[in-house]
């Protein structure tokens, strides 16, 4: 067991959580417009997946991209500036919450269209194969993507053309209320499981508890090593518990700001979301595991939280002080070769 690696994954998860709480706060203050999506509840998957990636790998994400960008190494100050559409944002303020991306961080483009990023990751695998870069393409996407035909086409092509891609489906629907029953999630498969679709094509498939950082890390690290060696695609379904704040059209901080002390002080846990705090919330769950398994102490956990909270506090100040783009900037970068 690599203690430093596990503590680093925890640090990324904690950073994502504090980042998303900051995004929520900015939206409550009406500092950015439009719809947005938080990664709370899925931190273990994103942080553990990115832990095995190298600079030559490419990650493509979705509308729920903040956690992926942070764990991939995007500086939270540039990510927050992007969400506020400021010039110091990862996309110069153009993309906003839907499109956080950073070519420098190995995350070239983020699609806000359901299923849009899945073939792009296969494209990265295609380029890696041709260029013999040793890199892999990684697609992070939700279960709703299986409703789109382009996802099936991509899985098929990745096998036919033997592309080094890892498809990571973060399924946050188990236990959720279907849209047809008045809920607010997608995923309308009649029965059965999304994993059966790549299985039917003959793709190597794995299922993992997406709330268990160690399990995701072990599985993904192993898959990444093999995909680099064989060039064949792999599919992973990470089953995550839906954060109660995601049951609404807009995120709602129903579970309050995270108190890491809940990981060892059960008396702080009560009320409607008790089960979330005790069993599901990946940050508290991993903190508990780290302590129980002797990987980290209370002091380590609190220290990490203090560190990342400071990082986010200064990132918020940075983002708020970054200017909005000049109006004339709308004309730039329409075509390559122009300024």
């Amino acid at each position: 067991m690599d203690k430093l690696r596990l503590l680093d994954i925890f640090r990324q998860m904690m950073l994502i959580r504090r980042f998303e709480e900051a995004v929520y706060d900015f939206h409550e203050q009406k500092l950015f417009g439009g719809h947005y999506h938080l990664y709370i509840g899925q931190e273990a998957t994103g942080a553990a997946v990115m832990a095995s990636l190298r600079s030559e790998d490419r990650v493509f994400s979705t509308h729920r991209n903040h956690g992926h960008a942070i764990a991939r190494g995007v500086d939270p100050k540039n990510a927050l500036a992007e969400i506020l559409n400021r010039v110091d944002g990862t996309n110069g303020g153009r993309g906003g919450t839907f499109h956080l991306a950073s070519a420098d961080a190995g995350m070239p483009h983020t699609s806000a269209l359901v299923g849009g990023a899945v073939p792009l990751a296969a494209g990265a695998g295609f380029a890696a194969k041709l260029q013999k870069s040793g890199g892999i393409g990684v697609s992070m996407f939700g279960d709703g993507c299986f409703e789109e035909g382009v996802v099936f086409e991509t899985l098929n092509l990745a096998l036919l053309w033997k592309l080094p891609v890892i498809f990571v489906c973060e399924n946050n629907t188990p236990g959720a209320i279907l849209k047809s029953q008045g809920g607010n999630n997608t995923s309308n498969l009649p029965e059965g499981r999304v994993i059966q679709i790549p299985q039917a094509l003959g793709m190597e498939c794995h299922e993992v508890d997406g709330g268990d950082a160690v399990a995701v890390d072990e599985l993904f690290a192993d898959c990444a090593t093999r995909v680099r060696a064989t060039g064949h695609p792999v599919f992973i379904e990470a089953l995550t518990e839906r954060w109660p704040g995601n049951y609404f059209s807009f995120p709602s901080m129903v579970t309050g700001l995270t108190q890491v002390s809940m990981a060892w002080d059960g008396s702080a846990i009560s009320g409607e979301h008790e089960d979330w705090f005790k069993t599901h919330g990946p940050v508290l769950r991993f903190a508990r595991d780290l302590i129980v398994n002797g990987v980290g102490t209370f002091g380590d956990i609190v220290g990490i939280d203090v560190d990342v909270t400071e990082t986010i506090t200064s990132a918020k100040e940075f983002a708020l002080s970054s200017p909005l783009p000049e109006t004339d900037s709308v004309y730039s970068h329409l075509l390559a070769g122009e300024s």
């Binding site: 950015f32 417009g33 439009g34 559409n85 303020g93 153009r94 993309g95 906003g96 919450t97 839907f98 499109h99 909005l324 783009p325 109006t327 900037s329 709308v330 004309y331 329409l334």
Partner: peptide, 9 residues
């Protein structure tokens, strides 16, 4: 041009 995320733009 494309539509920037920024509401002012």
């Amino acid at each position: 041009v494309h539509v920037p995320a920024n509401v002012a733009l």
